[in-house]
């Protein structure tokens, strides 16, 4: 053992540093750990890659797109121009001469706002209630879960409709939250049961015994373990928000104050007679395509991200040459030992 060649007072316990690391180095290390490594891992899975690209496309559309594409104007073009025929109206126009492409683009920012508000509300709410309830246990847990169970069984859409009818929300972020009013309950329950198991993990108990505050334990030990789950559900609830909001706009339940793909569908369906004539079909199909593509991106991303938080995959993508080589050995011998045992 190495202890033999040390003098008794050379106890590692007293060691302090003799060198300084520059601030820049530390920042670079942080960036590497939190941005570059996850990005590399995402990129290595085709599903996550395609999903990310699709999501990026919509983000660009909702930010840069609105500057590049003028807002649609009534009568700016001929009525019901078919798609892909007129370069000024790439996706054609509706029965009032509105540019459909511009409508799709200008519906994106409020939609993004709704998605972010709704998905954030769902995941944050669920994570807080789930981790708190699971980690605390006891009476707190019982009461919170009773409340959650009730919310869980109330069907979402009718509840949302009733509340939307009563409140008539106009702000996109308010709509986003209303749409996910009880969507968090299921996630909270799932997170709670995971926390219940994690709470008993040795490393969590060790942190507890070291006297680390509950806050720190939740943030450093518990939540990172739930991150894959939370992220996947963030994306899933984003999809729920898109589906529900478009559905409600389509039904005409939400007030038509924003551009929305659902509003386009509603107008095409009710006033454009898209059901009866093939001439107006594209008016209906364009917003549909916008929804399907976005939600396709969401699902692909969710399917591809489970690798993101796997430390085994992570270690392979780190810039640390030393750890890199030994990891390969470890991982492979791990594989072998499972073969041997299994």
């Amino acid at each position: 053992m190495t202890a033999d060649d040390r003098t008794p007072d050379d106890v590692p316990f007293e060691t302090v540093s003799s060198s300084e690391v520059t601030r820049g180095e530390r920042i670079r290390a942080t960036i590497d750990e939190w941005i570059l490594v996850p990005a590399r891992i995402l990129w290595s899975d085709w599903r996550a890659r395609v999903g990310t690209l699709i999501m990026l496309l919509y983000v660009l559309m909702g930010t840069v797109g609105v500057w590049l594409v003028d807002a649609p104007q009534i009568g700016e073009g001929e009525r019901l121009i078919p798609p892909f025929t007129d370069p000024s109206y790439p996706l054609g126009t509706d029965s009032m001469g509105n540019d459909l492409f511009a409508q799709v683009v200008h519906a994106t920012p409020p939609m993004l706002e709704m998605i972010v508000a709704g998905a954030l509300f769902t995941t944050v709410m669920a994570t807080i209630v789930g981790t708190f309830s699971g980690y605390k246990g006891g009476r707190t847990d019982k009461l919170l879960m009773m409340f959650t169970d009730i919310l869980l069984t109330i069907p979402g859409l009718p509840l949302v409709i009733v509340i939307a009818v009563i409140l008539e929300p106009r702000e996109p972020w308010v709509i986003g939250i209303i749409l996910t009013l009880n969507a968090w309950a299921g996630l909270a329950r799932a997170i709670r049961s995971q926390v219940l198991t994690m709470r008993e993990e040795s490393f969590v108990e060790a942190s507890r015994l070291m006297g680390l505050p509950t806050r720190t334990i939740l943030v450093k030990d518990i939540v990172p373990g739930l991150m894959p789950y939370i992220l996947v559900n963030f994306v899933n609830s984003a999809r729920t928000v898109v589906f529900t909001s478009v559905g409600l706009y389509f039904l005409g339940i939400l007030p038509f104050t924003n551009h929305n793909w659902g509003v386009m569908m509603n107008l095409a369906y009710t006033t454009g007679g898209a059901l009866y004539t093939l001439r107006a079909a594209h008016w209906l199909l364009v917003p549909m395509a916008a929804i399907v593509l976005l939600s396709f991106g969401f699902i692909l991303f969710a399917q591809g991200t489970d690798r993101l938080f796997n430390p085994r995959v992570r270690a392979r993508h780190e810039n640390n040459a030393g750890a890199n080589s030994s990891d390969d050995a470890d991982e492979n011998s791990g594989k072998v030992s499972t073969h041997i045992q299994g």
Binding site: R312, A315, A323, D327, D330, E331
Partner: peptide, 8 residues
């Protein structure tokens, strides 16, 4: 060793 994850 400090830069490794536990599974390593």
């Amino acid at each position: 060793y400090a830069g490794r994850y536990p599974h390593q």
